[in-house]
């Protein structure tokens, strides 16, 4: 619940910033570890969560990122929350991740996973996930909706997935 409030705050915050100054994308990132990730994944709210696992070093991830941006605008005000979870190297957050978010004007909520002991948490996202990027989890815990999409997704697949589950 606390995390959700965080997300709301971040969303409000980033919207406010977008209106005033356009050069502060990437300032709202939040560093998380496994317990925070689990909270996000267990969010009990009756809304659809679209969580994308990605990294700036992953070509297919960068290619599909605009779909998430675009759909988040399309579904603004609807019961969908888009979340990006970055697996960028912690040592490269300032050097690569933040400049990337600024340059590409990403205004989605961005969490950076600081827990590099991947084997301890990858299976909690989806039992079948081997750790390859990108990967997207779509869920609504209230309605027992849980769909895992490993690999790059195209815009229409993502839109269909949201439309069917919203």
């Amino acid at each position: 619940m606390k995390i959700y409030k965080h997300i709301l705050t971040m969303l409000l915050f980033s919207t406010m910033i977008t209106v005033s100054v356009a050069t502060v994308y990437g300032q709202g990132i939040e560093r998380i570890r496994t317990p925070e990730l689990e909270k996000i994944l267990r969010n009990p709210d009756d809304r659809l969560f679209v969580v994308n696992f990605w990294a700036t070093w992953c070509g297919p991830c960068v290619r599909e990122l605009p779909h998430f941006e675009k759909l988040s605008k399309e579904y603004q005000g609807k019961k969908v929350t888009f979340i990006l979870v970055s697996l960028d190297f912690p040592s490269e957050i300032d050097k690569k991740l933040i400049p990337f978010l600024k340059k590409n004007e990403i205004d989605l909520a961005v969490f950076v996973m600081m827990d590099l002991d991947y084997d301890t948490w990858i299976g909690k996202v989806d039992e079948g996930w081997q750790g390859n990027l990108p990967a997207t989890l779509v869920f609504n815990n209230t309605r027992s909706i849980r769909q895992f999409l490993p690999g790059e997704v195209d815009e229409s697949t993502l839109r269909d997935m949201i439309r069917k589950n919203i």
Partner: peptide, 9 residues
């Protein structure tokens, strides 16, 4: 066995 994060094949 462990899960390995990396670049997809």
């Amino acid at each position: 066995g462990t899960r390995a994060v990396g670049c997809s094949i």
